[in-house]
Computed example of a mutant assay.
Amino acid sequence: MSEDEDDYGVGRGRPPQHSRFKTGQSGNPGGRPKGSKSWKSVIEAELSGGVSLKEQGVELKVTKMEAFAKRLVADALAGSPRALGELLRQINLHLGEASTASSRDLPATEDDVRLLLKYAEKALQPHSAKERDDD
Rank of each mutant, 00 (worst) to 15 (best):
A101H: 02
K34N: 13
V10M: 06
L116V: 14
I43E: 03
L106T: 05
G85A: 13
M65E: 07
P15T: 02
L115G: 07
G13T: 00
Q17V: 01
L93I: 02
H94M: 00
R82Y: 13
E5F: 02
R89H: 13
G50F: 12
K64G: 00
S80L: 06
A101N: 02
E44W: 09
E55N: 13
Q17Y: 00
R132H: 03
R12S: 07
K22F: 08
K130G: 05
R82S: 14
A67L: 03
E110H: 07
T109P: 04
L53S: 13
F21K: 12
E131C: 08
V62S: 01
D6H: 04
F68K: 08
G85S: 14
A83H: 08
A45Q: 10
S26T: 10
E86V: 13
A78H: 11
Y8Q: 01
G57D: 08
S80N: 14
E3H: 02
D6S: 05
D105F: 02
A120P: 02
E59K: 15
L117G: 12
K64A: 00
D6N: 06
N28H: 15
E97Q: 09
R82F: 14
P107E: 05
G13P: 00
Q90S: 09
Q56A: 15
I91C: 09
E5L: 03
D135L: 09
A78P: 06
